[in-house]
Design a protein around this nucleic acid. Structure first.
Length: 640
RNA sequence: GCCGGAGUAGCUCAGCUGGCAGAGCGAUUCCUUCGUAAGGAAUAGGUCGAGGGUUCAAAUCCCUCCUCCGGCUCCA
């Protein structure tokens, strides 16, 4: 039979060959170095048998996948160490992750102080350099080994359909596992246990709570140190820390959880963002609307939110009538649409509102600005004819990419398709999904398909961003909705003089301002582009003698709408510069007697570039351009 | 909501084997008027997250609650 190698070439191998055999077939050196392999893209043990026509790839310690294999083995080292110290601990699953590995265990009580002890036990296992061996056992034998471990038994019952299952052994310890693993525990190199948390068995809330210990592993101590260093640096970018440092926002205990207060600096950034969105919306034919923060629950019953999300809504009793803070803007917008009759000629109708909504999220979920109880959606709702869906979706995606590119973010795109529980006919779902897919394809966008992840009312395209720690958060979105028009009995009169049902499209360019702000803070590390910077220029007089001139410079900059302050504390120039850098100013200008006489300024930017004897008008006009073009970095002084 | 960690001055944090609540930064006042990353001195600033308990004595030990952090689960 033949297998296909990564370069597309074919290799013929004897029937029953394993990946390791394939590697030896390619070359004895590669055979010896083989750690694991991939068959049709799936990481498997080097002992796995290949099938005819399989796309195979050999994993050696030079491969990207090697780290995954090594970390999987590190999870085993952890589990062995744990069971040496706590023989009663029950193992469940312990896979590698992007950052390291974890192992979920039961029947053991751990706190952070125990980790150090386990870690040193792990180190002695690594030092002992036990061979890691793959062993096949019968199902019966496996079941008897796990007589007291209902989790492993469940795995055997549900996942192992073969009569033999594989174990990996090291020293006197073994674990039911498909592998692959490195050759010996010594190969694991450097490990560190990072965290202890809880996880539900099989990820289901009703199941047992397990203890999850997560850690990371690298081939060498040096790699581990580098990783930990990067992790520390990432924490420095945390929006909560920068938000405090730059006086952007706060979430004091007294206001309640997840209810952020925006300080003047933070509000300035948000205002710039909303002005940008307003401009884009106007350019694309949106009409701005406004709706209140609270409605009779009748409205939420009509929209269906009440029955689905009642427990997560803030409900109020007003004169014996129930009201609810709005968790979404769409019912309000649908109601506006419903206030008059529409012709097919009027569509698409595009409404827009920066609407603050309130959702009582689970307490354990709240986190900085990324998950809050009150947030503002840059919410757009489009009421369209079925034949207009494609064009409108296309435009929304263009708008989203304009925003994303303007700020220089990386975004991941996912098409979420019909879930099991959904409303709407097969035809309309199929057509809608096709149109979304088609827009993504013809636009040449890279995207993943998340099958069954759509909303119950329609398919959607989600755009997500990474935070400083690499966690993904949903941002912009565009969603089709077949449900809301039904529930609000929306209609328009068609060319045929019959009533027709419009389709609703929900969309947000930022997602929520809160979350987008969080992503931007971490993305820029607080070093906002000029157009977003809360304070754009700080004027630093050399001494009190030039305070007057400093204010004249400030006025000249403010005349073109720049945000400027004069540093008038009686500090040394060095100190003023230091402070302005700490405050992440894009630009500072130093003025003294020389500048006053010549009518110039000395410019310094956040990259510590300096340029003296600059004509004020030249600086002002550059800043206007830099701001209006939304350039990401200060570029008045070209780096030489 | 679940498991683990944490909450002390405006900020960052020390004190926590029980015995007078501390430091640095910031703030205020005074001196200094300074040329490209911290000039000097003095002063003020605290219900130690909240409530209860143990004790002669609690920031420190115990209980309950609140809030935050890391994961899990959830996310219209």
């Amino acid at each position: 039979m033949t297998v296909v190698l990564p370069d597309g070439s074919e290799l013929s191998v004897p029937a029953g060959a394993t990946l390791e055999d394939v590697a030896y077939e390619i070359g004895p050196g590669l055979g010896r170095d083989t750690v694991a392999g991939k068959i049709d893209g799936e990481l498997v043990s080097k002992h796995a048998a290949v099938h005819d026509g399989a796309h195979v790839e050999i994993v050696t310690d030079q491969s990207d996948e090697y780290l995954q294999v090594l970390r999987h083995s590190a999870a085993h080292v952890f589990a062995q160490a744990l069971q040496r110290l706590y023989p009663e601990a029950k193992l469940t699953i312990g896979p590698p992750t992007d950052e390291g590995f974890y192992y979920d265990v039961a029947n053991v009580d751990l706190d952070e102080e125990d980790l150090a002890e386990i870690e040193s036990e792990m180190e002695s296992i690594i030092e002992a350099d036990y061979d890691i061996e793959r062993v096949e056992r019968s199902r019966e034998e496996a079941l008897s080994i796990y007589e007291d471990n209902e989790f492993k038994r469940q795995i055997l019952d549900e996942e192992a359909d073969e009569e033999t299952v594989t174990f990996y052994e090291q020293d006197d310890w073994q674990d039911l596992c498909q592998g692959p693993h490195v050759a010996s525990t010594g190969e694991v190199g450097a490990v560190e246990l990072l965290d202890i948390s809880a996880a539900y068995w099989r990820g289901e809330e009703d199941n047992e709570t397990l203890t999850r210990v997560s850690g990371t592993a690298f081939p060498s101590e040096k790699d581990l140190e580098e990783f930990l260093e990067l992790r520390e640096q990432a924490k420095e970018r945390d929006h909560r820390k920068i938000g405090q440092e730059m006086d952007l926002f706060s979430i004091p205990t007294v206001t309640g959880p997840g209810l952020p207060l925006y300080h003047p600096n933070g509000k300035t950034v948000l205002r710039e963002l909303s002005e940008y969105a307003d401009r884009l919306n106007r350019e694309h034919g949106y009409d701005e609307v406004e709706t209140p923060h609270v409605f009779r629950t009748e409205l939420w019953k009509q929209s269906g939110h009440y029955e689905n999300y009642k427990d997560d809504m803030f409900l109020l009793d007003v004169n014996d009538e129930e009201y609810g803070l709005k968790p979404m803007n769409c019912p309000g917008h649908a109601t506006i649409f419903d206030q008059k009759t529409w012709s097919y000629r009027d569509l698409p109708k595009r409404y827009f509102e920066n609407g603050k909504v309130y959702r009582k999220e689970q307490r354990g979920e709240l986190s900085g600005l990324s998950r809050v109880w009150s947030f503002t959606i840059d919410d757009g709702h489009l009421f369209v004819r079925p034949d207009q869906i494609r064009r409108e979706i296309e435009t929304v995606i263009e708008m989203i990419f304009e925003v994303v590119e303007t700020v220089g973010l990386d975004v991941e795109v996912a098409l979420a398709t019909r879930p099991e529980k959904s409303v709407g006919s097969d035809e309309i779902w199929e057509s809608a999904e096709d149109q979304l897919r088609d827009v993504l394809e013809s636009g040449g966008y890279d995207y993943d398909v998340e099958a069954g992840d759509g909303a119950f009312y329609g398919p959607k395209i989600d755009f997500s961003f990474e935070d400083a720690l690499g966690r993904l958060w949903d941002g912009p979105t565009v969603q089709l909705d077949f449900n809301m028009p039904e529930r609000f009995d929306l209609s328009y009169t068609g060319e045929d003089n019959e009533e027709h049902r419009p389709v609703m499209i929900h969309r947000a360019l930022y997602g929520s301002y809160e979350r987008f702000f969080m992503v931007l803070i971490e993305h820029f590390n607080g070093n906002f582009p000029l157009w977003l910077a809360p304070e754009q220029v700080r004027v630093l007089p050399v001494s009190d003698d030039t305070l007057g001139y400093a204010h004249r410079v400030k006025n000249a900059l403010e005349d073109v709408g720049l945000r400027v302050e004069v540093e008038d504390r009686d500090w040394t120039v060095g100190r003023k510069i230091r402070e302005a850098h700490d405050d992440r100013l894009p630009y500072m200008v130093v003025v003294g007697g020389d500048e006053e006489e010549a009518g110039t300024v000395s410019v310094r930017d956040r990259f510590e570039n300096e340029r003296n004897d600059v004509a004020l008008e030249e600086f002002v006009s550059h800043l206007e351009t830099e701001r209006d073009e939304k350039r990401v970095e200060p570029d008045f002084i070209d780096a030489e």
